[in-house]
């Protein structure tokens, strides 16, 4: 479904991504692991079109997308839940969700996906009229995911959904993400520092270090890998 090949990303003189190649098969959850500054977010931002690669290609469902602007990539079926959530804090929950469906014109479908979002995240339904700024961190993360789902993506890019949340909440959110993947067949590329949790729900994983892939394999393999255990799982 998604094919990234020899991707390079630079911010001026700073090389953030140095030749990453990865594949996300349809229907799977692929985790992108790595420490701070490894280049995980840069990779996601480049896939969603916020950032231009300096070298390499990105193919989505057989089409090159590395030159297409972000606002068109959403339309093609890739939605990103950005790092730090980036919800519209001054708008209501409902307005945030409505904006998620900005590129869509199918009223009935939008209504259906709204109901679906409220099924996965009941708290968003209860607070639909509230200003998003008043939501708790966990609820804001749910809103960010809900907003991305409203675009009806075939590929969801999730950037550190666990950031700054209590472990209980993180677990809850991961459970829902897994449910969405299983029930809807939604393909997910998940960026996480919390390798433990990510490997629990992922099918496959890549480990990044300073902008390069240092390890890849099935989630099971990586869980058993000595180096991964020592560096990322902490046991």
């Amino acid at each position: 479904m998604l094919n990234v090949s020899d991707l390079h990303v630079a911010y001026g003189p700073v090389l953030a991504v140095r030749g990453i190649s990865l594949t996300v098969p349809k229907g799977q959850i692929v985790a992108l692991l790595g420490a701070n500054g490894a280049g995980k977010s840069s990779t996601l931002r480049t896939i969603s079109g916020l950032q231009r690669p300096t070298h390499g290609t990105i193919e989505f469902e057989g089409r090159r997308i590395d030159n297409i602007p972000a606002e068109r990539i959403v339309q093609m079926g890739i939605s990103q839940v950005p790092e730090g959530r980036q919800i519209f804090t001054d708008l209501t929950v409902m307005e945030n969700l409505r904006l998620g469906a900005y590129t869509r014109r199918d009223g009935a479908g939008i209504k259906r996906d709204l109901d679906r979002t409220f099924t996965y995240f009941p708290v968003l339904g209860e607070r639909r009229g509230q200003t998003a700024a008043l939501l708790s961190g966990g609820e804001q993360q749910m809103l960010a995911i809900g907003r991305a789902l409203m675009a009806k993506p075939s590929l969801l890019l999730l950037d550190e959904p666990s950031l700054g949340l209590a472990p209980m909440l993180v677990r809850e959110i991961f459970r829902i993400v897994k449910a969405i993947n299983e029930e809807e067949g939604l393909t997910i590329l998940l960026v996480e520092q919390n390798a433990n949790l990510a490997l629990e729900i992922a099918n496959e994983a890549y480990v990044l270090e300073t902008g390069q892939v240092v390890l890849e394999g099935s989630a099971e393999e990586l869980r058993g890998n000595e180096a991964v255990r020592r560096s990322y799982l902490g046991y």
Binding site: P69, V74, P82, I87, F88, D90, L91, L99, A151
Partner: peptide, 19 residues
């Protein structure tokens, strides 16, 4: 609504597909 969103957060606006 899209104009208000744009004023608030351009990155997020682009991510939902607002030109």
């Amino acid at each position: 609504l899209a104009m208000r969103a744009t004023a608030q957060n351009r990155t997020a606006s682009r991510l939902v597909g607002i030109p």
